[in-house]
């Protein structure tokens, strides 16, 4: 038997707090350099879908619904569109692209042979997915402004909120990536979480239209907090309960990142 019997590291060691270094910038930069090669198609890809929905629903349904909460339906829809398209962009990046780099291309394994720890890689993926969703969000905001659906300088304050929204959904998405056996797994996340949340979070209609019992749950969803901040800013209003909404998004980001990191360590540091 081997000498120096030490107890095996406890399973909880995987969930120790993150230890980050500035080397994560190099990992973020790697993803940015890849994105830069295909920046235009990437932006158009992130832009086309939400803009088509916004214009289609906004003008189409807008004929039937002349006004929502005191503004035109399309102006109401603009804020919701920016919020949910940010969610989608961050989610797709953390899920599909993250999984490709972690599992298929073994990019993370290659990086771990350099003086970069897994903690740095997962954190870089988090910030990168938020950055990419923010780049897409800024493009959508430009379209919204170009169509005249927002005219307030307060709309610029939506950009940091978009980044935080991206961080929040990237962190949630990285949990799924850490658990996924294959790409097919992500389908559950979309049909069971992302899609219902999009419908319940006040993107397309005010949450007041929901039954009372559903309203309580809906108000707690992360996307609801993002919509509650972004929509008023685009309409030139200061959002109510700013601290609460920002706090919830930040708290979800931190807790989800911690969980995602723990699960990823358990998966890769065997």
């Amino acid at each position: 038997m081997p000498r120096s019997e030490a107890p095996p590291p406890p399973a909880t060691a995987h969930f120790a707090p993150p230890r980050l270094s500035l080397r994560l910038v190099a990992v973020w930069r790697r993803n940015f350099l890849v994105w830069k090669k295909l920046a235009l198609p990437s932006i158009v890809g992130n832009l086309a879908d939400p803009v088509i929905y916004m214009l289609g629903l906004g003008y189409g349904l807008g004929l039937l619904v002349p006004e929502v909460e005191g503004v035109s339906y399309i102006a109401f829809l603009a804020g919701g569109t920016l919020a949910y398209s940010t969610m989608n962009a961050a989610t797709f990046e953390a899920l599909y692209s993250g999984f490709s780099r972690m599992h298929v291309q073994k990019t993370w394994e290659a990086i771990m042979n350099a003086p970069i720890a897994l903690d740095d890689i997962v954190a870089a993926e988090l910030v990168w997915a938020a950055s990419k969703s923010c780049l897409a969000g800024v493009a959508i905001l430009a379209v919204i402004a170009a169509f005249g659906f927002t005219a307030s300088p307060l709309a610029l304050a939506a950009i940091p909120v978009v980044f935080l929204t991206g961080l929040c959904f990237a962190a949630l998405g990285l949990i799924m990536t850490a658990l996924a056996p294959s790409y097919d797994f992500f389908m559950y996340y979309f049909t069971l979480f992302i899609t219902p949340m999009t419908l319940l979070s006040g993107v397309f209609f005010p949450q007041g239209q929901l039954p009372d019992s559903v309203q309580t749950i809906a108000a707690a969803l992360p996307l609801s907090h993002a919509v509650s901040l972004i929509r008023p800013l685009l309409l030139g209003q200061v959002p109510a309960h700013i601290g609460l909404h920002l706090g919830v998004l930040a708290l979800i980001t931190v807790l989800a990142f911690w969980l995602a990191l723990g699960l990823t360590r358990r998966r890769l540091l065997k």
């Binding site: 890849v34 090669k37 291309q105 073994k106 990019t107 394994e109 290659a110 042979n113 350099a114 003086p115």
Partner: peptide, 16 residues
């Protein structure tokens, strides 16, 4: 690891 080079078993070159 800053002073070590590694050639892993599986191809992990960056296809992008």
């Amino acid at each position: 690891r800053a002073r070590v080079g590694v050639v892993p078993q599986m191809d992990s070159l960056d296809p992008d």
